[in-house]
């Protein structure tokens, strides 16, 4: 079953990203975009048309791209380094660690089409390891917005923030969930719905599926709390502990491997501060079969019905103690 109820109202978050970047770029001449031949896939055509000199295309060379980003920041510019997340993180992880995070370079890394957004192109183009790779690197903020509102807010926040940021975006359409005018706060989850039976936590393309699952649960008389947790690092410890204490169990879902991502980050907090039963939904540690992102999310139990079913099983575990 598909989570989407009204496809006409779905938004590609890349549009909110570039619209915000172009607006900020008009105000701040220090903003430059850096890419690896990904002008089209990063939707940087408008930025290039407006600020042709400020689009630095290094060609198909991701290690150089990230290093160049660090150097541009050293020279006083504010680079947004854009590329498909699979290549940006996988190919240049050491540059992200040494040149950006360890050097504290004021660079914004923007992983485009993360998760399984490239769908049928297969696991080489999927980026279902990037939370795990990036969130263990000190001094790097890791953020996966859930809709176009949060994407715009996160880009605006990143431009104003002094320090390294990894922004993980999809291209898969999602409905707007957060209210217009929403302001992004690093490390602060948003309660989208309150309940006491279970907490559902997600980010990126999974948040709206969690809300839909909560509606299905409510129809069965089960009230779920839903948290949108865009920031994977630094993780919102207070929100997780409060959720554990209020609802007694936590279910997470992400367009990422079940190993090392959002669910793992939450589990680390739960184990340390408030042990309660948990279930982590995600890509089950395999190279996935052919299919679109939406198909694969459903396939791995992350349709709203799948999430609702997993939530009921988790609640039963909680009751068994």
């Amino acid at each position: 079953m598909n989570a989407v109820t009204n496809p006409a109202r779905l938004h590609d978050c890349r549009d909110a990203f570039v619209a915000t970047l172009e607006r900020l770029g008009a105000e701040n001449p220090r903003i430059v975009a850096v890419c690896n031949d990904s002008v089209g896939s990063s939707k940087l055509g408008g930025f290039k048309a407006k600020f042709p000199d400020r689009l630095v295309n290094v060609g198909i060379a991701e290690q150089n791209m990230v290093g160049v980003g660090a150097g541009l920041a050293n020279g006083g510019l504010l680079p947004f380094v854009c590329g498909a997340s699979c290549f940006l993180t996988g190919r240049s992880l050491e540059q992200i660690k040494a040149d950006i995070a360890y050097s504290n370079a004021n660079v914004k890394l923007v992983g485009i089409s993360a998760g399984m957004a490239y769908g049928e192109l297969g696991p080489t183009h999927h980026s279902t390891e990037d939370f795990a790779w990036t969130r263990v690197i000190p001094n790097l903020a890791v953020i996966a917005p859930c809709d176009s509102v949060e994407t715009a807010a996160a880009v605006e926040w990143a431009a104003a923030h002094e320090g390294p940021v990894f922004l993980r975006l999809s291209r898969v359409g999602v409905p707007d969930l957060l209210p217009a005018g929403h302001r992004f706060e690093l490390g602060r989850a948003n309660v989208l719905r309150d309940g006491d039976a279970v907490t559902l936590i997600a980010n990126g393309t999974l948040t709206h599926r969690m809300l839909k699952a909560a509606e299905l649960l409510a129809a069965d008389g089960i009230e779920a709390r839903v948290l949108n947790m865009a920031t994977v690092r630094p993780i919102d410890v207070a929100a997780i502990v409060a959720a554990a204490e209020a609802t007694g169990c936590i279910l997470t879902a992400e367009e990422h491997s079940v190993y090392g991502g959002l669910g793992s980050a939450i589990a680390e907090v739960v184990v340390d501060h408030a042990p309660v039963p948990m279930k982590i939904l995600g890509v089950p540690g395999i190279f996935v079969p052919t299919g679109s992102a939406e198909f694969l999310l459903d396939e791995f139990g992350m349709s709203p019905a799948g999430v609702a079913e997993a939530a009921k099983a988790l609640i039963a575990r909680k009751r068994r103690g």
Partner: peptide
């Protein structure tokens, strides 16, 4: 293999600014 790409970015920044 890290210093030269960063130096390219520094030099490019000077050209831009």
């Amino acid at each position: 293999g890290h210093g030269l790409p960063v130096a390219v970015g520094m030099a490019k920044a000077a050209k831009l600014t």
